[in-house]
Every structure is written in structure tokens, then in C-alpha cells.
Design a protein around this nucleic acid. Sequence first.
DNA 1: GAGTTTGAAACT
DNA 2: CAGTTTCAAACTC
Length: 937
Amino acid sequence: MPNQIPDPTVEQSGDVNDIYEVTSPQTSQEKAITSTREKEQKGVSLITRDLIQIKEELDDFSHQLGNNLEDSKLPGLTILAPLTDHLPNKSVPTGNKTSFELGIVQDCKVSFPLMKDTNQVSADKELVAPFTMVTLATEMNNSTDNVNTNVHFSGETLPVTVVSAAGNSAVNVNTSKQQVVILQKPQPPNHSSLSVSLPTVVASFQPVGQLSKPATLVCSQPSTVCTSTVYVPLTVGKNSEKIVVPHSTVTIPQQTPLVAQTAPKRPCLMPSGQSVTKIMLSKNSLVSNQSGNPVAVAVTNVATGSITSQQHTILLASPGKSYSVTKPITSTGPSVMRGVTGNSNKQGFYLLSPVKSPGTKVTMIPVSLPKSPQKIAPAPACGTTSNFPRVAIATAIAGGSTPTVTTTCTVAKQTTMPATTTKVLWKTVVPATVKSSTSAAGSVPQTIKLVAASGLPQVLMKPGNLPASNLSGPGASPVVCPIQVPGSKFPYVRLVTASTQQTSVSTVVTPRTATVGPVSGIRSMAHSAQVGTSTVQTVGMSSNQLRFAVPIVPAISGHSQIASKPSSSAQRVLFPATTVTTTSQVHHPASNSTLGISQLTPGTSALLSGSNNMTGLVVLPAQYLTQVQQGQQVSSGALLSTNFLLSSGQGQNILPVPVSANTETPNSHQQAYIPIAAATAPPQGLESVTHQSNPIPAPSRHQVNGVALDCKERRPCNCNKSQCLKLYCDCFANGKFCNSCNCANCYNNLDHEEERQKAIRSCLERNPMAFHPKIGKSKEGDQERRHTKGCNCKRSGCLKNYCECYEAKILCTNLCKCVGCKNFEDSSERKTLMHLADAAEFRVQQQAVAKTKISSQLQDLPIRPPISASGERLPFSFVKQEVIEATCHCLLAQASDGEESQLTYVELEKLVVKEFGRCLMQIIETANQTKDLIPET
DNA sequence: GAGTTTGAAACT
DNA sequence: CAGTTTCAAACTC
Ligand SMILES: [Zn+2]
Ligand SMILES: [Zn+2]
Ligand SMILES: [Zn+2]
Ligand SMILES: [Zn+2]
Ligand SMILES: [Zn+2]
Ligand SMILES: [Zn+2]
């Protein structure tokens, strides 16, 4: 099933001992291996073709392996995934068994040399891992280009890799046993304010696997806010149908002193005086640690790949705040767990006791933001596959009271590479001066940073309206989806009510108090929060971060409210074109003015007073979702303004992500787009309903499965005469700006906002539902999708993509006025087509599986020099061209025999794999027998 | 890639 | 609303 993404790490033992160290550069023998392409013969079966493909990959791998070994000058070279080009280009398939991460396939891994700890005053400085370099990928990756080494802790060698995550590098520490890994980045001499951002460090446990017992993460930090992210790959639940988050509860005990009990031998590299926060992961959703504070854990999907890989994000609150965890969420893909400690700690994470349980990988990311908000890469394609990824933001709730939470949104640096990971950091700070009856811990400032990892399209915001210490299930929580508006300088957040209720309402309140500083005493909004209101608050940011609270009215309330904070600067509000169905309100606290959004013409611009340059509300149709228009200048000149993009279409709301109005850094002028995905997850099991399963997303003229395609998945338009301001243009019709399109004379961008708004109005005049999805549910709550208007096909028989019904993979209905329709349930033509598609799909899947398998196996192959230290040839070097060919012949023969025996595909596969194993054994044996001989040249 | 087909959008 | 034109995508070769 598509939801079950085989996580290679699950099957891995993660034994560090299996990692081979490259001790010497490879000479050149393996380079002789060249790939030959098997001639495809008629009648070659699928399996044999796959085998041929595998063979080619093997050849390529051998090639690559040889070349890279030759290039490597340093021993212990750790593998790099050659997926991004902005990182050091030492790319070698990893020999580290446990280093493969499905969720962040595009990440690079680079090993770094140890550095002298500059913070240590003593003469003999200790070697520490330069974890600060994780962010260098974005900022100064040049300095990391040359390094390769292993990190030694207490004599043990831990391969440390730096993973590039959308401009943010991360450090992967692979350990196989319970051990203390200290991730220490050189402490900057002075970091005085909360706004000082820290680089992001990602450390991952190895082996991965489901934790049989609670895992403990210990976070040691200096003196400021510490935010960390823990990546937890989703694991397959008991009923192998679901993939669940391994840990649903995160507990942060109160200022647990650093405990070295698990690894007393290891030196603690953290600076003296650092406090340690212990984070415990447990399986139970509601683990109450008497001594500690449960941490709110929000789990959401995080799309990391272009296809189906998703991650869950778990937000960890700071010590002193208790969150209960959302229920284990079934989803696909790895999980991301983010933890934030508000105990005035800053950096220096180390992980304690990674339980040796294969399958679960815990990645801990201390997050810090050195720089101003940056551009965010567009969300990855998430179009037709199951749930749209989301990132959840959990707001702290302490002791039953709901203090006003200041949310800090920081957009991490972004690289323009589409495949790179984008990080969006949200920081929620509970003012220490909150007078609400919070516990002692409640007074601890909290910071929640949300990291939108590789192409996280959405940010799911947990509203503060949840009962104390309890976060409701994901379905009941409004979602803040950061979205990208191409051509706009402003990041947007889309507030989406995850619940099934149709009338979602979002309230954006920017109270006067919002202008206070990071920890200023913001009046508690507990009341409103308890009634299900979240607050988005734009606050003047000290430097690089923007704080805002997001009041989210639960879907039940059925009205939208926008309150703007009185301020000196003006805010521009563009009202959504699709708020027709929603009762919306714009409330201005200062003037008590209330505007009904529905009363306004879509696209209307309103001026609202704002403050701190955090101005500008832009309300756009729900369809105006994620997009990136890099390099485009904002014509409105509202560089320092914050835009809110609201929409109520389809029960969805869009909120903008305020961008820091930081003028201190040049980067502040960059666009900080936050990707977003369509808020409503497309109905699952679509194929079962329509029996039109096409693995390849059908090119959609307007929408796919009734949901606007995400930016990456959306096809560029080629409009010539419409200026992309007519519904002819798919971009425009989907409510998106043209981005990377091939259109000519395009006006569908913010440079032509005026014309565009005019066009929107025009379209809405013609058809008020113009920007509504064409594919909707036939009935409320009904899973059945149907074309809202029906098609009018005359000649296509509704079996080509000309037909909007067929394109959307739905059957024609009585609404259709098609002639000669063959797109109905019992249509034989349709069934034939279906079967063809299914066959193709099967083939594609099998190919993908084979590819994944082989690549996974290749990844697990230890990197080993052909010549050992003693000079003898290793079996590895015997895999030469002839051997490869012979092996492939054996495999083909087996496959052929198996097919003649009418074996099933699975059996056939087993047979071939078995044969492959036998071949390998033979190679190894032969190598061992001849190892004393002088290797032939 | 050029040319054709197609049906929604736009227009009258 | 119906008929026609326009348009860009889907499709074919
Ligand atoms: Zn266009
Ligand atoms: Zn376009
Ligand atoms: Zn365009
Ligand atoms: Zn049709
Ligand atoms: Zn139809
Ligand atoms: Zn039809």
C-alpha cells in the first residue's frame, strides 16, 4: 500500500561495528568496471527487465564506489547523499548501515573534522564536533567543504554527518548502543536576548527502531532559550496497516541535572553551568511524570519527499509546561519531534540512551536562529498522495490556565534548491510576567519552534484553546499552514481547521499588547483561548524573529474574526474572494470597527492600522496557496509589512506568516515564504471508490482530485494570450501565482496585483464559485467525490483527460452532460482502461520497490577499500565486470526458471534474491581463497 | 516538436 | 440561456 513506506532503517541492526572505515584511498581498480547494458530481448519479462535495471544500477554503483573511493583522501569518510549540490560534493553511498533516512532523502550528509573547542580556556583544548557548521550550508558552507573525519568520543568513533536540511545542516550521530553523545557547538561568547537565534543541529539516534522503552533525551544548554527538534520516524503499528508515531509523549522533567549514568566514561563537553533538560519519549500518549512536566507533543505530517514520504512533527515544550500528547497519529513517513526547552538554555544537546531498538530513529534538533528570516522553499509536491503534510505547533498550556502566548515565527534560511529542506521556526514564548495561575513552571518562558523540514508544506498549529495539559487530537485542532505566495514578500499562514466541520473560523487578533518585547507581559488571553480561540499576534521583533499569537476559533464557532492591532503603520487587507460562504469579521480593537469579510468585495484592500511594520493583511481565496515566486519584488513596497492571508473557502482559513521586519540583516529583505499544502487532505482510498487508480498523477488542468495542486506538483502553464488572468490559466484558476511557468505576458503575479485583483473580481462576477474546487463531495460528509458541474464531453467518451471527470478520476454523474460517456461504473471500456492503468501501476511500483531495495542494499554496503591495511585484496575488489555479468546471468537464469515454473512474483523475487545471495557468497569465498595471491591487474 | 483535438472559459 | 469564439491543455504523429 502506498501508505506503507518501507523504512530501511527498521530492518537495520545499526551495529556500528559493521561500519568499515576507509583507511586508504582506493587505487583505481574498480574504475575499470564499466556498465554494460543488457540487450532487451523480445519477450523479456518484467522481472528480467527489472533485473537488468538492477544490474545497471549495480554497475553504476560500482562505478560510483570506485570513483569516490579514489577521490576520498581521508580515512573514515562518511557517506554523503549526493542529493544537494550546495554541500560538499563528496558523495558516496554510505557504508553506514543506519544512515539512510527515507524521510529526508534529499539531504546530504557530510562528515566533519573535529575542532578545538574554542570555548575552552585550558591549553589543551578538547576536540569537539563543530556542530555549528550545521547551519553553514546556508550561511557559509564553504568552510565546511573540505572536512572529513570521524568524531571520537572517549575513544569511540562515531560517524558524524552533517545533514543538509533545506539550507540548514544537521548533524547525524549514529550510535548503536546506549551512549552519550554530546553535540556541542562552540558557544558564542555572548548571546543576550531571546531573539538570538541558534543554528540548528540535528542529531539522530542510531539504530533506529521502535523504542521498546522510553528513550531519554538529555538536552544541555547554556543560558537561553533552547529549541530542539526530535525526528521520530513513524513506525508500523501493530496492525501493520497503520504507521504510527512511536512516541506520543514527551516529558521534560524539571531541570533534571545532567545525568551521566548511562555513559559515565564519556566526557561531557558542555560548558560548565549549563543546565540539562531531559526529554523522555514514551509510547503512552499520556504519560504523567510526577517529577516532570509532560510536554505537548504535536504530531503532524511533514512531507519530505515528493511522493509519499511524510514526517510527523512533535513539538516539545519547555520544562515547566506540561503538554499532553496528541494521540498517536497514524500516518506515513518519518516523524519529526521538536522539542523546545524554555529553561533559558541555549545549546549543547546530547542524547541519552538511545534504546537499541531498530526501526526508530530519533533525531534531536536544537534549533537556533542565527539570522533573520529567510526565504522558504516551496512546499514539496504533495498533491495526490494521502494526507497533506502538516507541521503542528503546540502552544503551551500550563496549569489549566491559558496565558497569552507569543508566537515567534522565524523563518530559517532558505536555499533556492527545491529539494532542500526548508525550516520554518515558530517560537512560542509565554511571557514570564503572565499573571495567570500557572504553576511555577508556567512562568518559564516557552519557546516552540516549528521546523518545516524538507518541503513541509503546512504548519499545523495547535490552538491554545485546549484543555490544560491536554492537546486534543489532531483532527480537532486548527491548523496553521504556512503558505507561500509567489511574488510576494510575505509569508502566509493558512489556518485550517483540521476537523471535519466545514465552517472553520479563524481569528487573527493583534492586540495592542502585541507590541511588547519578547517576554513582555502580555495580557493573558486565557478566556478566549479556552473558548477555542487562538491568537496570532504580531509583535515587534527585536531582531530576527517575529512574534505573533494566533487566535484560532474552533470550527464550531462558525465565524471568522480578524482584529488588527492599532498601530502607526497601515495594513493592507485583501479580502478573500471566496469568503462568500463564511461569516467573517474583521475587528479592529482600537476603533471597535468590525468588518464583515463577507460583506466586502473579494480582493478588496482594506487599510488597517498596524504596528512595528507588521502590517498588511492580505486575504486571498483559499486557493491561493503555496507558491514561491523567487526573485520577484513586491510591488506594494510593503517590504516590512506582514501579510495575513486569510481564506475561508472550503472551510479553510489562510493566515499569513508574518515575516520578521528585521532591517538589521540584509537577509531580511528576502522573501520568507512558508510552504503550504492544501489544507484539506484529499479523501483517501480514492481508488477504491472510483476504481480509477493511476499511480501517476494525471496532469491536471485545474485541480487534481479536486484539490489544487501544490506548487511543486502544479504544472507550469503555457498561457500566451490570457495573461494568466483568465480561468484558462491553470495557475490562475487554482488561485496561484504563476511561478516557473512558461507563460507569456503573465500578469498573474504580485507585480500586477491590481490587474489580477480585477480579473479575480471579474471571474467571480461571472461565477461566484469560480475559485472553488470543481470536485467536491456530493453530500456533506460524503466521501464520494463528484464534479460540481459535470462535464460536457462530446467526443472523448469521458475516458480521456479532456474530460474533467476522468481527469479527476471520478465517474461521470447525472450532472454531466456528456455525450457517449463511457466513464461510468460498468463501462467495459473504462474497465479495460483501468486494467491497463493498473498493470502499468503495478509495474511502476515493482520497479520502484526493486529500485528502493537495491539502493537500500547498496547503501548498506560497507565502504571498504579493495586493499586492506595488510595489503591483501578484499572480496570487494573481486567484483569486476565479469563477475557482475556472471552474477546477473545467474539471476536471470533463476528468474527465467522461476517464471517457467509459474511462480508468483513474490516467489520469483525470493528466488532471485536467494540466488543473488548465493552468488555473493561465492564471490566472497573465491576472494578469500585467492586473497594470498597477487591480485591481477 | 509540430500539429490536431478537445472541452472549458469567454464572449456575444 | 444558447451559440460561437477563444484558449490552453491533452493528445497524436
Ligand atoms: Zn498561465
Ligand atoms: Zn502559470
Ligand atoms: Zn503566467
Ligand atoms: Zn466527460
Ligand atoms: Zn463527467
Ligand atoms: Zn461522461
